[in-house]
Amino acid sequence: MKQYNIDLAALSLRAALGIMFLAHGFTKLFVFTPAGTAAYFESLGFPAFMGYLTILFEIGGGLFLLLGILTQIVAILTVIQMIVITYIHSANGWSFSNTGGGWEYPAFMALTALALVFLGNGRFSVLKLIKR
């Protein structure tokens, strides 16, 4: 029973983080547009190509998390990404509803991803189903 609960926890976190990533990636793709996202990244002092890579990572990583593919690798990359975003938003205060967005949301996402680093896929993943 305990392992089953751990597997459900991994599935729940993978689904939550995966759906969140898909939502953010598709927003960057369809609302802000790739060029707009790249310009925003440049305004933050990052190279424009990082905007394009972020769109790919959020959509691809979101799909991988939902399916349970390379979960720990995607989660480690997510922790790194969210730590950077937490730092960027740290000047805006704690609450993400503050002007410019605070650091509470990306810090929470970093910790959620860190939990997945430790949990891994769990049994409810495409890879586990294929092996059966």
Rank of each mutant, 00 (worst) to 15 (best):
M1W: 00
K2D: 01
K2G: 01
N5H: 05
D7K: 03
D7P: 01
L8Y: 02
L8H: 09
A9D: 00
A10Q: 05
L11N: 06
S12E: 00
S12P: 00
L13F: 10
A15V: 02
A16W: 09
A16G: 10
L17M: 11
I19M: 14
M20A: 07
M20G: 00
L22F: 02
H24N: 09
G25S: 04
G25T: 01
T27R: 10
K28W: 02
F30N: 13
F32M: 10
F32W: 06
T33P: 03
P34M: 15
P34Q: 15
G36S: 10
G36E: 13
A38F: 04
A38D: 09
A39S: 14
A39H: 05
Y40C: 03
F41Q: 15
E42I: 02
S43F: 12
L44A: 05
L44C: 00
F46Q: 12
F46S: 13
F46D: 08
A48T: 02
A48K: 11
F49R: 08
M50H: 02
M50G: 01
Y52D: 12
L53Y: 06
T54N: 08
I55Q: 12
L56Y: 12
F57A: 12
E58S: 03
I59R: 14
G61C: 09
G62T: 02
L63R: 02
L63A: 12
F64D: 04
L65M: 11
L65C: 07
L66S: 06
L66R: 02
L67D: 02
L67T: 00
G68A: 03
I69K: 04
I69T: 04
I69L: 15
I69Y: 11
I69E: 09
T71L: 15
Q72H: 03
Q72I: 01
I73V: 11
A75W: 13
A75G: 03
I76M: 10
I76T: 01
I76P: 06
L77R: 11
T78N: 10
T78H: 04
V79L: 12
I80N: 13
Q81P: 04
Q81W: 05
M82R: 12
I83K: 13
V84W: 15
V84G: 10
T86M: 15
H89R: 11
S90C: 14
A91Q: 13
G93D: 08
W94S: 11
W94V: 14
S97L: 13
N98P: 11
T99F: 14
G100C: 11
G101Y: 13
G101V: 00
G101L: 12
W103S: 10
Y105H: 10
Y105G: 03
P106Y: 11
P106Q: 09
F108Q: 09
M109W: 13
M109F: 10
M109V: 08
A110H: 04
L111K: 08
T112I: 09
T112A: 15
A113F: 03
A113Y: 05
L114R: 06
L116W: 04
V117Y: 11
G120V: 09
G120Y: 08
N121K: 14
F124G: 00
V126K: 13
L127H: 11
K128Q: 09
K128H: 10
L129E: 07
K131H: 06
R132F: 03
